[in-house]
Design a protein around this nucleic acid. Structure first.
Length: 996
RNA sequence: GCGCAUGUGGUGAAAUUGGUAGACACGUCAGACUUAGGAUCUGAUGCCGUAAGGUGUGGGGGUUCGAGUCCCUCCAUGCGCACCA
C-alpha cells in the first residue's frame, strides 16, 4: 500500500468538515485557550506560500493545545472591506460585494486544502451588515465617551455634561485645547448646537477640521500609518496635505496607556520598540520667549508677544543662538518686519509650492528666512534672531524651536549656512566642525548653569523655568490622532446624522446603517464619497443628512477578535459571559506590517471598551508571534537595455493596482525551469535608449520564458518569450517596441545581465508561488511540514522549494513503518515471533526513542520552534526504521505527536490502527522520563579545556579523582604523568575537565 | 543620522542555562538493486592534509579551566523610524 496523500487528505478534510470536530463551545470544564491569526484581506490574488506560514504555525499550536486538554478557540474570518475591491469595482463596474464574495471563496478553498482546524462556524466578515452593525455600535460608544485625564480612563459623555453643568470646563485647566473656556452658567446658556460643538472637543471619536493626508488618485484621505514616504501605502500614489473636515480617533489620549500596556504583554522587543517609536514620547519643557518690546501686540501698553517653544534640552538654554518658527506658524505674519516682508513672502510662496514628498526627499537642503524680529533669552536677556524654516514642523511641539547649534546638528547646519554666530556652551566637547548632542559636558557660558554637568542641568533648568513662570515641564508625543473617515464606498457607513450641520448619533435601535447599493463608484461632488451621489439615502426628513464618509479599513479589524467569541449574537457585540470566558487572545500570530496600525488601534479600542465596562481586559493580545515574511527571488536586469514605448504608459491597459510606486510598471519574466523569476523594471515614462543609463534596474512583467541559464537572458530568448507568452497581458507588449542590448561579451553574444534581489512576495512582483501547486504535487501534510522546516517562524526567509523532497521522503518513510508495499499492514500489537516479547511490549531502546521524541517535540512546539521539532520527527522515524519497530504501542503515540503538524496522515494511520474516534479526542502522550535515564554515561574528557578523550562512568558519580580516571585511560595517564593536577571540574553532568 | 535585529559548511539551518560546533534536511560524490531511474537503500561530505595532525562560528581584543553563546571594538547585512527640537 502506497502513501496516497491525495485520497487521504480529501477524505479527512471532508470528514472533519461534515462532523464539525473543530467546532468549539463557549462552555467547557477544560481550561480555555485562544489562538488567533490575523485575518486576511481577501484580495483577488489568492493566497501565496507566504500567507499560510503564520496560519500553519498557529494551527499547529491550536491542535497541540487541544491534545494537551485545552478548550481551544481557533477561528478565521475575512477583513472584507477595503480599497482594492472598490478600485476594482471602479474599473470593471462589478459590485465589491460580488468580487469580495468570489475572492473569499478562493481563499476558503485554498485554506481548506491545507487542512486547518478552524472553527468555521465562527467565521466573521467585516463587510457583513450583522458584523458592521456592531462596528458602528462600538463607534457610537467611542463617540459618546471622553477621556478623563485625572482618572486616566474613558468615561461616558453624560458624566462630562454633568461636570460642565456644575463647574464648566475651567477646572479642566487647559488640559484640552478647546475652543473656549466656560463656566457652568455659560454652559447652561449655550444652545444645543453650541453644546454639541464644544463636546466635540472632548469626544474620543470626533470630527474636526484639520490637515489630512489627501490622496488624489485614490480619492480619499489616509491615516498616517497608511502613508509611506509621502505616498499611499496602497498603490504608491502621491499624498498631499489638505484641510478638510474629518473624523478622528483621539488615540493620543491613550498614548501613555498604550506605552504602559507594552510592559504587560509578550511581544517581541522589536515590535514594542516600533510601537514606542511611533508613539514617540519625549520629556521636555515648554517655555516662552518674549519678543523685543517694539513687537508688542498693539500699542505701548499691550502685553509683549511671545514665542512658545518645546525643547527636550532646557539645559542648553544659554546656547540658543537663534529661533525658528515653522513657516505655517500663525505668529509669522505678525512679527515680520517691513524690511523683511518681501523676503518672507517669497519664502512662504516657495514653501507652499513644495509637496510633502519633495520636502522629505530633500532633507539635506537648507532653506530659511530671517523675519527681522528678535526674541529675548529669558535668563540673560540676549537678543536672539527669529527665523522661519521648513525644517521646523508645524505639527510637532509648538511649531517653534530654540536653536542650539553647538548641540544639534540641524541647528548647526542652519547656523553655518546662514552665518549665524555659534555660542559654545560645552567647552572641549564642541570642535566647531559639527554639533555634539552630548549630555556629559560641563556647561560653560551658561549663566547660573556654569560648571554644572548637562545631565543634572536639565532638572535645574526645569525648576528655574517653572519658578520664573515662563514655562513648564511637558511630555510630547509624535503620534497624532488617527484619521477615521474615508471618502470611499466600500466601508462601514457612519451611524451619524447631521441636523443643522451638527453631528448626532443614529439611534442604536436603527443599527446597522446599511451600505446602500450604488450603480456608480466614482467620487461624489467636491471629493466626497460616492455615497454623496445617492441623495435618497443621504437626505432624511427635515433637512437632516447622513454622514457620507465611510470608516477606514482598520475599523472592522479593531475588534474582530471579540466577535469570534460570540459571532452570532444579535443583541450585543459579544455576550459579557463569552468575553469573560475567552478573555485575552493567548497567542496572536501575524506579520510585523501591522505594528503601528492595526495593533495600536485594536489595543486602543479594547482599552475604551474596558474603560466603559464592556470587557474585563484592557490588552487584547497576551502574546504576539510575528511570522517572518517569505520572500521571493526577483531577478533584476543590470546590463544596458532599453524599452521604447510607442505610447505613453498611461494609455496602456494595465491594472492600476499593479502600478506600484508612482507609475513604474512591472513586468516579470519567469523562468519556469528553475522556479526563479526574472524581473525588469521599466519606468513609467516613454523613454529612449539614451535615457537608459540612469536606470539601474528595470523590470519586465509577464512574459514567460524558458531559458537554461539563470543569470543570463539573451536577446533572442527574450524575444521568444514575448512570442510564446499567451497570457492576456501580452497585449501590453504588443504595444511595446522593445530594444535592448549591450552585452557585447566574450563571444559577442548579446545578453542582459541579471542580479537577484530578495523581496517581499507579492502579486505585483510576479515572484509568488501558489500553495495549491505544491499541495497537488506533495500533499498538504508535506507542505505544512516543509513550511515549518524552512527555518524559525519568526525569521524572514526566501522561498525555496529545493528541500521539500526531504520532508516528503520523511512522510513516506513514516508510512512504511505501517505498511509494506507488497505485504500491506505490518504493524504489530502482538509479538510476531516467540523470540520477541508478547503483547507488543516495546523494548527499552524503542521506548527511549519514543520518549526522546515526546520530550523534544513537546518542548519545541511549546516555544514555536517548529523547524527543530520537524527535525526531531525525522530522527525518530529514522531510528524506528533502524530498529525495525512496527509496534502499535510506539507508533500510536508518535501519530498523536505528529497530528498537529501533519494532521491528515496522522489521522489516517490512527484509524488504520483501529481507533474509531478522531485524533482530536486523543491525549497528548505523557512523557515518562524513566525511559530516558541511563545507568551509565559516556563523558567527554577535556584537558585544559581541550577535548581529548571520553570515559564511561555510572550516572550517580558526582566527583572523581584524576588518578582513578588515569587508571584505565591511557590518554589521561599520559597527560598527567609528570604534571601536578590543579583541579578537576565535573560540569553539570555533561563533561569532565582536567586542569594540569 | 537614530533605534532594533542578525552574521555558523556549497545551501536552509541546529546547539534550551558558557561545556564534544555543524543535529536534521537539501545539494554533491561513491556504491547497491535495476531495461531504466527524477523510485528505494547504504556510505562519505566544514576547510587544509594521503595520513597523523592542524584549523574552524564576520574581523580584532578581553573575561574563563573552557566562548557560536558573556564583555569591548570594528565591519557587513536586514528591518523600523527619520528634519520629532
Amino acid at each position: 500500500m502506497e502513501y496516497n496523500y491525495r485520497d487521504i487528505e480529501k477524505k479527512w478534510q471532508k470528514e472533519w468538515k461534515e462532523s464539525g470536530v473543530y467546532h468549539v463551545s463557549n462552555s467547557s470544564p477544560k481550561p480555555k485557550f485562544y489562538v488567533l491569526d490575523m485575518f486576511p484581506y481577501p484580495s483577488g490574488a489568492g493566497l501565496h506560500v507566504g500567507h499560510p506560514l503564520g496560519y500553519i504555525a498557529s494551527d499547529i499550536y491550536a491542535r497541540y493545545k487541544r491534545l494537551k486538554g485545552f478548550n481551544v478557540l481557533h477561528p478565521m474570518g475575512y477583513d472584507s472591506f477595503g480599497l482594492p475591491a472598490e478600485q476594482y469595482a471602479l474599473e470593471t463596474g462589478q459590485h465589491p460585494a460580488v468580487t469580495t464574495e468570489k475572492n473569499i471563496e478562493t481563499f476558503r478553498q485554498q485554506l481548506e486544502n491545507i487542512g486547518f482546524s478552524f472553527d468555521w462556524s465562527r467565521e466573521v466578515r467585516t463587510s457583513d451588515p450583522s458584523y458592521y452593525k456592531w462596528t458602528q455600535w462600538i463607534f457610537l460608544q467611542i463617540f459618546n465617551s471622553w477621556f478623563d485625564k485625572k482618572e486616566n480612563k474613558a468615561r461616558s459623555i453624560e458624566d462630562l455634561i454633568e461636570i460642565f453643568e456644575q463647574t464648566g470646563n475651567i477646572a479642566d485647566n487647559g488640559q484640552r485645547q478647546t475652543q473656549r473656556e466656560f463656566s457652568a452658567n455659560e454652559w447652561k446658556n449655550y444652545s444645543d448646537d453650541e453644546k454639541q460643538e464644544l463636546l466635540m472637543d472632548y469626544r474620543l471619536a470626533y470630527s474636526a477640521f484639520g490637515e489630512v493626508n489627501w490622496c488624489e488618485a485614490l480619492g480619499t484621505v489616509l491615516a498616517n500609518d497608511e502613508v509611506v514616504n509621502g505616498a499611499s501605502e496602497r498603490g504608491g500614489h502621491p499624498v498631499v496635505k489638505k484641510k478638510m473636515r474629518q473624523w478622528y480617533m483621539r488615540i493620543t489620549d491613550y498614548a501613555e496607556r498604550l506605552l504602559d500596556g507594552l510592559e504587560q504583554v509578550d511581544f517581541s522587543d522589536a515590535m514594542k520598540e516600533m510601537q514606542r517609536n511611533w508613539i514617540g514620547r519625549s520629556e521636555g519643557a515648554e517655555m516662552e520667549f518674549i519678543l523685543t518690546p517694539s513687537l508688542s501686540a498693539g500699542g505701548e501698553g499691550d502685553a509683549p508677544r511671545k514665542i512658545k517653544v518645546y525643547t527636550t534640552r532646557p539645559d542648553t538654554i544659554f546656547g540658543v543662538d537663534f529661533m525658528v518658527l515653522a513657516p505655517e506658524h500663525e505668529l509669522v505674519k505678525d512679527i515680520v518686519t517691513e524690511a523683511q516682508r518681501p523676503a518672507i513672502d517669497e519664502y512662504l510662496t516657495y514653501v507652499k509650492s513644495r509637496s510633502d514628498r519633495e520636502r522629505m526627499a530633500e532633507v539635506k537642503q537648507i532653506t530659511g528666512c530671517f523675519t527681522g524680529a528678535y526674541a529675548l533669552n529669558p535668563f540673560d536677556g540676549k537678543e536672539i534672531p527669529v527665523w522661519i524654516a521648513e525644517y521646523v514642523l508645524a505639527g510637532y511641539g509648538t511649531g517653534a524651536i530654540m536653536a542650539v547649534p553647538c548641540g544639534d546638528q540641524r541647528d548647526f547646519d542652519f547656523a553655518k549656512h546662514f552665518n549665524i554666530p555659534i555660542t559654545n556652551i560645552i567647552g572641549d566637547y564642541f570642535n566647531g566642525e559639527e554639533a555634539n548632542p552630548t549630555k556629559e559636558a560641563t556647561l560653560t557660558n551658561s549663566g547660573f548653569l556654569n560648571g554644572v554637568k548637562m545631565k543634572d542641568a536639565i532638572e535645574i533648568a526645569n525648576e528655574k523655568i517653572e519658578e520664573k513662570g515662563i514655562g513648564h515641564r511637558k511630555v510630547n508625543y509624535k503620534m497624532r490622532d488617527a484619521g477615521f473617515s474615508r471618502q470611499r464606498y466600500w466601508g462601514e457607513p457612519f451611524p451619524i446624522i447631521y441636523k443643522n450641520g451638527v453631528a448626532h448619533p443614529v439611534d442604536i435601535k436603527e443599527l446597522p446603517v446599511e451600505l446602500p447599493h450604488v450603480e456608480n463608484y466614482s467620487a461624489g461632488p467636491e471629493a466626497q464619497s460616492p455615497l454623496a451621489n445617492i441623495t435618497e439615502w443621504v437626505d432624511i426628513a427635515n433637512g437632516e443628512k447622513r454622514e457620507t464618509n465611510t470608516m477606514p479599513g482598520y475599523a472592522g479589524s479593531s475588534w474582530y477578535f471579540l466577535r469570534y467569541m460570540d459571532p452570532h449574537n444579535n443583541e450585543e457585540f459579544a455576550d459579557k459571559k463569552a468575553t469573560d470566558y475567552w478573555n485575552q487572545v493567548d497567542v496572536y500570530v501575524g506579520g510585523t506590517e501591522h505594528a503601528v496600525g492595526h495593533l495600536l488601534y485594536s489595543r486602543m479600542w479594547t482599552k475604551v471598551l474596558c474603560d466603559l465596562g464592556y470587557v474585563n481586559f484592557d490588552e487584547p493580545f497576551k502574546r504576539l508571534v510575528n511570522q517572518g515574511m517569505i520572500t521571493g527571488n526577483s531577478y533584476f536586469v543590470t546590463g544596458f537595455y532599453a524599452f521604447k514605448l510607442e505610447k505613453n504608459i498611461d494609455d496602456l491597459e494595465i491594472d492600476p493596482l499593479d502600478r506600484k510606486r508612482f507609475g513604474e510598471f512591472l513586468i516579470s519574466i519567469e523562468n519556469i525551469n528553475t522556479g526563479f523569476s526574472t524581473i525588469f523594471q521599466l519606468n513609467g515614462e516613454d523613454y529612449r535608449v539614451e535615457d537608459i543609463s540612469e536606470y539601474q534596474k528595470t523590470r519586465v512583467r509577464y512574459a514567460h520564458l524558458f531559458i537554461d541559464s539563470k543569470d543570463r537572458l539573451t536577446k533572442q530568448n527574450l524575444i521568444k518569450a514575448f512570442e510564446l507568452d499567451n497570457l492576456s497581458s501580452v497585449a501590453i507588449y504588443e504595444k511595446l517596441n522593445y530594444i535592448f542590448w549591450d552585452g557585447k561579451t566574450e563571444n559577442g553574444e548579446e545578453f542582459i545581465q541579471c542580479s537577484h534581489e530578495v523581496e517581499k512576495m507579492s502579486k505585483s512582483k510576479y515572484n509568488t508561488v501558489n500553495p495549491n501547486d505544491l499541495i497537488d504535487k506533495y500533499g498538504a501534510d508535506t507542505f505544512r511540514m516543509y513550511e515549518m522546516f524552512l527555518g524559525p517562524v519568526e525569521q524572514s526567509k526566501p522561498w525555496d522549494t529545493k528541500g521539500i523532497e526531504g520532508v516528503h521522503r520523511f512522510l513516506k518513510k513514516l508510512w512504511r513503518l505501517f505498511f509494506d508495499e507488497t505485504k500491506g499492514p505490518i504493524w504489530t500489537t502482538l509479538a510476531p515471533s516467540p523470540l520477541e516479547r508478547a503483547g507488543g511490549e516495546a523494548s527499552p531502546e524503542e521506548l527511549k526513542v519514543l520518549h526522546k521524541a515526546i520530550k523534544k517535540i513537546g518542548e519545541d512546539t511549546e516555544r514555536f520552534s517548529y523547524n527543530t521539532a520537524v527535525s526531531a520527527f525525522m530522527v525518530c522515524v529514522n531510528e524506528l526504521t533502524d530498529l525495525k519497530c512496527h509496534k502499535k504501542e510506539i507508533l500510536e503515540p508518535l501519530l498523536i505527536l505528529l497530528a498537529p503538524y501533519a494532521p491528515h496522515i496522522a489521522e489516517e494511520l490512527y484509524h488504520q490502527l483501529g481507533n474509531n474516534t478522531t485524533i482530536i479526542d486523543a491525549h497528548y502522550p505523557k512523557l515518562e522520563t524513566k525511559y530516558l535515564i541511563e545507568s551509565e554515561k559516556e563523558y567527554p574528557v577535556s584537558i585544559n579545556g581541550k577535548m581529548r578523550t571520553t570515559i564511561t562512568l555510572p550516572l550517580d558519580v558526582q566527583q572523581i579523582e584524576v588518578e582513578k580516571i588515569a587508571l584505565d585511560n591511557e590518554v589521561v595517564k599520559k597527560w598527567i604523568e609528570d604534571k601536578p593536577v590543579r583541579k578537576i571540574i565535573f560540569v553539570k553532568g555533561k563533561m569532565i575537565n582536567i586542569v594540569v
